[in-house]
């Protein structure tokens, strides 16, 4: 995935079954953000792989004051990339098991 300066990782081990997983997000490279970022640390949250939209979580982070509106897209994309990777890994595990 593209280096957005925002890192998103699993905050727990993926058992491949749960649809709701814990993710952790933090800023690795502030220079890639448009707005001035207040370093608040790593943000942990749960994300439903089937029901939720990464951009909606990014919007909530903006509303909560973690990021500026101008960085919503980059945060949303970072979450989207990680979610896509998790889904891809799960599909690969399932097809390998067949």
């Amino acid at each position: 995935a593209e280096d957005t300066g925002v890192r998103v990782e699993l905050a727990e081990e993926d058992d491949g079954k749960k649809t709701s997983i814990a993710l952790r997000l933090w800023v690795e490279d502030q220079k890639k953000l448009k707005g001035k970022y207040k370093d608040s640390g790593a943000i942990e949250f749960t994300f439903d792989l089937n029901k939720e939209v990464p951009e909606a979580v990014a919007q909530e982070m903006v509303d909560s004051g973690f990021f500026l509106e101008s960085d919503m897209k980059i945060v949303g994309k970072s979450i989207r990339d990680r979610v896509a990777l998790i889904k891809w890994r799960r599909e690969r595990t399932i097809s390998r098991g067949k």
Binding site: S40, A42, E44, T46, E60, S64
Partner: peptide, 27 residues
Amino acid sequence: STTTQVVTSAGRRFIVSPVPESRLKEQ
């Protein structure tokens, strides 16, 4: 540890904690 919680109006919970130094990219 210094962990704070933020609950949004939509009911989502954000748990904020310091990033381990080892996980930060060198500037």
